[in-house]
Write a protein that binds this DNA or RNA. Structure first.
Length: 490
DNA sequence: TTGCTAGTTGGAAGA
DNA sequence: CTCTTCCAACTAGCA
């Protein structure tokens, strides 16, 4: 009988957690451990909303462990240093953690694996964050990384159905006696301000219970779930949103992607007729797999330079435009409302992300996708390294997508879904009384109408930062040129 | 080699 | 209100 440690990083759940089962098997004592890594505790890297979500998730994990007479042990510091001491202090013979394929995690885990093995500790590292093991996909493609969703889908189909989720443990070995409390820190202890939730409770709480509950609530509408077609969902719907909005729970592994997948297949079996990838619910999980795989296998994936899948485009360095975009003062209500929703709630509908990303890059402002990526990385609850980089490259027509002449209009796009402007009024109260006719382009309203609405453009709300038609024409030309150079990062 | 086809989610105008 | 066409036109993947 040996003492074991489960090191939680993502995978903050009891259900479908092979690493937890591996750690619990035949263990005299089990130390369920989370390490607060200073690399992440940085308001510039991880915004307050996501940090709060993480702490909530840890709180629930601790509660679930305590129900099985265990607990969560929270350590603080550089993971390698902290672990080296803990493995020795607690005489750990087996260290288990779920595999993480992001570059920071790969480097960290490789160093820790060799440190542990040098100390005679067995290391078990199952894949459970994704449906498939990216190495298996790449091997099946004879070392070639799938360059498109279709190519990925064919490889995944060859591998067959993803592994079924494993059951949650019904009991756990006891933790050892500890020399200190090792409790979950508060936001304030981590140096974060803890503002009153400004969004009226629109931010979903973290934790696996909430993730599972939201999954089941969404899937309880069998017809909608079976008929789910992503491009047809409404980006201006906010109460409730038109998609599952489960990204944050998936990102932290509060909700297992394999459980999600299995539950969706159950709905399909019940309903019979259902949509197919890429637009279906299953298709959304496969997009995640595809982007995880490319992100894992591509060097410098979150940058333009040195990134072999990314087209090299001479973006402008324009701090003023970037600031106006990220601070929701572009003067385009649809863009500014979406950026406000992002800042306040840490979430945007996928198509809103498209609209603001297109606007920042190839559509209007000609600012590098890397700048937008950094803002999303900080503010999104569901920030996910490979998905974020992938989608920014997609929207800026730097990779995967190349119909660069398809530009989202900051005026007419949202109008199709929400002609009255409910969404804009919700997130930009200054515009609440602007007549629907002008809600997406208030600068066109006659001045008396602006006065009447209590929203004078240039005074209460900014003038549009660019003329969209002019910017679009100019940028199309620049894209044409960049495509003609046909330069890639390799 | 070459040619063909399909690709998650644009917009504007006109029938 | 829905459908088609034009805009100007890329490339991975396959036969």
């Amino acid at each position: 009988m040996t003492c074991t440690m489960l090191w939680f990083r993502k995978g903050l759940r009891m259900h479908d957690n092979p690493a937890l089962l591996a750690a619990a098997r035949d263990a005299a004592r089990l130390y369920p451990t989370f390490i607060v890594d200073p690399w992440f505790v940085n308001p510039e890297r991880v915004g307050v909303n996501r940090m709060r979500f993480l702490l909530e998730s840890l709180g629930e994990l601790d509660g679930n462990l305590r129900r099985l007479s265990s607990r969560l042990i929270v350590l603080r510091g550089n993971p390698q240093e902290v672990l080296e001491r803990a493995l020795s202090d607690w005489q750990i013979g087996r260290l288990c953690f779920e595999r993480d394929t992001e570059p920071y995690a790969c480097a960290r885990d490789e160093a820790i694996r060799s440190m542990a093995e040098r100390a005679g500790v067995q290391v078990i590292c199952p894949t459970a964050h994704t449906l498939y093991d990216p190495d298996e996909i790449i091997e099946l493609g004879r070392g070639k990384v799938p360059a498109s969703y279709g190519a990925f889908g064919r490889l995944a189909a060859k591998l067959g159905e993803p592994a079924a989720p494993v059951a949650a443990p019904s009991h756990l070995p006891p933790p050892g006696a500890l020399d200190a409390e090792y409790g979950i820190p508060t936001l304030a202890q981590l140096g974060y301000p803890d503002p009153e939730c400004p969004s009226g409770g629109m931010i979903p709480p973290g934790g696996e219970g909430e993730g599972l509950r939201r999954l089941h609530v969404y899937l309880s509408d069998r017809q909608r779930s079976a008929g789910f077609a992503k491009p047809d969902t409404d980006p201006t719907a906010f109460a409730p949103p038109s998609t599952t909005a489960l990204g944050a729970h998936l990102k932290f592994g509060c909700l297992s992607a394999r459980t999600f997948y299995a539950e969706v297949q159950k709905v399909y079996r019940e309903v019979g007729k259902h949509t197919e990838p890429p637009v279906s619910l299953t298709g959304q999980l496969l997009w995640r797999e595809f982007f995880y795989t490319v992100g894992y296998a591509t060097p410098n994936y979150d940058r333009m330079e040195g990134n072999p899948v990314c087209r090299q485009i001479p973006w402008d360095d324009n701090p003023e435009y970037l600031a106006a975009w990220s601070e929701a003062r572009t003067g385009f209500p649809w863009i500014d409302a979406a950026m406000t929703q992002l800042r306040v709630e840490g979430w945007l509908h996928h198509l809103s992300r498209h609209a603001v990303a297109c606007f920042l890059t190839r559509g209007d402002l000609w600012v590098s996708w890397e700048k937008g990526q950094a803002v999303f990385d900080r503010l999104l609850l569901d920030q996910d390294w490979s998905l974020n980089a992938s989608n920014w490259m997609w929207l800026s027509a730097s990779a995967f997508f190349n119909a660069y002449y398809r530009v989202y209009s900051p005026i007419s796009f949202a109008k199709k879904y929400d002609p009255e402007g409910h969404y804009v009024r919700r997130y930009l109260p200054k515009l609440a009384r602007v007549p629907a006719e002008f809600i997406y382009e208030p600068w066109r309203a006659p001045v008396p109408v602006q006065r009447q609405a209590g929203c004078v453009v240039g005074c209460d709300y900014p003038q549009p930062i660019v003329d969209h038609e002019q910017a679009k024409a100019r940028n199309l030309e620049r894209m044409r040129l960049a495509y003609a150079q046909n330069a890639r990062g390799d």
